[in-house]
Structures are given as C-alpha cells and as structure tokens.
Amino acid sequence: MVLAGDVTDEEFVKKLFSETVARFGRLDLLFNNAGVSSFAALEELTLEAFQSVISVNLVGPFLCAREAVKIFKKQDPTGGRIINNGSLSAHTPRPHSVAYTTSKHAITGLSKCLNLDGRAFGITCTQIDIGNAQTVMATPMATGMLQPDGRRVPESTFDVAHVAAAVVHIASLPGDVAVPHFTIMASKAPFAGRG
C-alpha cells in the first residue's frame, strides 16, 4: 500500500496509520526515514530553512512515532519496533550544518524517550546512524565536502543496499531484543572529528 503525503502534516500522518491498520490489522514496524538538509553558515541560515529541516527531520518522526505508539499499546499482543534514521551528524557535525545536526541530535533524544516510555509495552526503538550511503543526497561527496580545516575533500561512500540489509535485520529481531543504537558508514569516511 502506498500513500503519498507529507510527514509534517498531522492529519495526513493520522490517516496513514489508520489506513495501515485498516488494511493489515496491526502495525509491527515504523521506519522514520524522511529527511532533508540545509547547508549554510549560521549567520546566513534563514529561519524558514531551519524550521523546514526541523519539521521534516524531527516533527515528522515525532508525529509518526506518536501514532505508532498509540497502535502498539492497543493491539494484541502489544508492542512494535521503531527505527529512526539518525546520522553521523548526531555525534559529529559537518561545517555549516546547524539545522541538520540539531535535528539529528534531537532524534537521539526522541529515540531514547521512545525506548524508555515504550519498554513496559514491548516497544523498542533503534536509532540507525547512516553515514555516506550512496544516495542522491550524497552525490556532492564525490566532488568534495567542506572539512573543518576549510578544504573540500571527496569522501568515500558505500552501497545503500547495506543500509537496507541492516534495517531488515533489525526489523526481523524478536520483540525481546533491543538495538538502541546502530552506526553504519563507509569505512574510509571521515567521522571522528570530521577530518
């Protein structure tokens, strides 16, 4: 079942989850994967651009998690799994990435709260921090990304199929197994200190 919509639209998100349960009878997994970025020096970043990134990267996952948790708590048996797409930026920012990095740090808080508050109901949450998977969003990495020392350096990427395999693995685990945090990245990508 495919429903096109905007994860920042509360009414769409409610419809998405109600139609899912109507069609399949229950919900076992939510993967919060929608995301956008905006690279600009802090003093050049508009409020509109900042809020747009926060809306998609944080408000969207909050809305989807809220609706999923409602279902997870009511269904029989209770429980379910949420996987939130974090980022290496949840740990180490890139230069000029204040909106994106702020949103991904917030995903860490959301994920921890979902694990804590969901524990009694069999709800687990994984934050998967993905770095440099070869997607449209990663295309600029081949020509060079801004480094902390001001240089632009091409960065290694890896096949996004490995991310999909990791998500499938986490999703297939039994409900009594939790994976709070998972990081997957190109082995030669700059991460520690971003340089």
Rank of each mutant, 00 (worst) to 15 (best):
H162M: 01
N132T: 12
L146T: 05
Q134F: 04
P148T: 08
L146D: 03
A166M: 12
A120Y: 01
M141S: 13
V163H: 06
V163F: 06
R119G: 01
I107N: 11
G150F: 08
N115K: 12
S111F: 04
V136E: 15
K112H: 09
D149C: 04
T126V: 02
D149I: 02
A138I: 02
G131L: 12
G122R: 07
Q134E: 08
I128M: 15
T139I: 13
D149L: 03
D129W: 00
T108K: 15
S156W: 00
D117T: 01
F158W: 00
L114I: 15
A106C: 01
T126Y: 00
D149P: 08
A161I: 04
D117H: 04
M145W: 12
M141Q: 15
G122M: 04
D159T: 14
G150M: 09
T139C: 10
A133E: 10
L116Y: 13
P148G: 03
Q127M: 10
A165T: 05
M137P: 13
V153C: 08
A166N: 04
P140G: 08
G131M: 03
T126I: 00
S156F: 01
D159V: 14
D159G: 15
C125L: 07
R152Y: 13
C125T: 09
A133G: 04
T124W: 03
A161C: 11
Q147S: 08
G122H: 11
N115H: 12
V163A: 09
H105C: 13
T126N: 00
T126R: 02
A120L: 10
R152N: 12
R152S: 10
E155A: 11
A106T: 02
A161P: 03
G118H: 09
F158D: 00
M137D: 12
A120S: 13
G150Y: 12
R119W: 10
C113I: 04
G144T: 08
A138S: 15
C113G: 06
R152D: 01
Q127F: 00
K104F: 15
